[in-house]
């Protein structure tokens, strides 16, 4: 197994202050970095806090001091009625699917462990989510809503939302937004000075 990479903090934020990114790129990423959390408009407060709890299990952010607001971006998309251009025909409209599915998560938690999802330990929360992912969760909801597709769509949107954030991009060592100088060192093991090096892999390599 490969060792895990670890990249330094602050790389993308430092590049945003330079002329190595275009103005359009700087605007888009700075807005995402600085947007402050808003109360939900599409979800009710309880739906929203449940969604946040689920997002915390799908992409844990325990080590972060500045948390990336995933649920808020999903709420924003749904209130704006934005689509990604398609949906599974077996699924209801995105907003309905979210509302139904969230209710189904709590329903499954109660049927499996006699508590709401948010009352469960992290381990049991993960049990509930695994059951939904593998279409093994109990509950009326999943008679109406294909559990595997609900989970797949939710997970994809959560991953997409997290990794388009500059802080998440720092985490994985991505600096492709700094493209003004062009990329000339593009072959294997060729890095430009502005590309961060992993502090873990380096000399150690395979373990």
């Amino acid at each position: 197994m490969l060792m895990h990479d670890q990249y330094p903090d602050g790389t993308v934020r430092a590049l945003l202050a330079t002329d190595q990114v275009t103005e359009a790129t700087r605007l888009a990423l700075t807005e995402r970095l600085t947007i402050s959390p808003q109360p939900p408009q599409f979800f009710t407060a309880s739906e929203f806090s449940l969604l946040q709890a689920i997002c915390d299990r799908l992409i844990p952010q325990d080590e972060r001091t500045e948390r990336i607001d995933i649920a808020g971006r999903i709420d924003e998309r749904l209130i704006l009625n934005k689509s990604d251009g398609w949906r599974y025909d077996v699924m209801p409209a995105d907003g309905d699917a979210y509302k139904l599915g969230l209710a189904g998560v709590d329903e499954a938690a109660r049927l499996l462990f006699l508590q709401t999802f948010q009352q469960l330990s992290d381990e049991l929360k993960d049990e509930v989510l695994k059951a939904i992912q593998h279409q093994e969760a109990p509950g009326e909801t999943w008679q109406k809503l294909p559990a595997n597709r609900f989970f797949e769509e939710l997970l994809t949107e959560v991953a997409n939302t997290y990794y388009c954030h500059p802080l998440a991009q720092e985490e994985i060592g991505y600096v492709g937004m700094a493209d003004v100088p062009t990329w000339q060192r593009i072959g294997l093991n060729q890095l430009e000075d502005r590309e961060p090096k992993s502090t873990e892999r380096g000399a150690g390599g395979m373990v």
Partner: peptide, 20 residues
């Protein structure tokens, strides 16, 4: 055009199609 995948979603045909 930003070098940012999220902002560039505006280039896709985003009217919903039903995939069966």
């Amino acid at each position: 055009f930003a070098t940012d995948e999220k902002s560039q979603e505006k280039l896709f045909w985003n009217d919903e199609r039903l995939s069966a």
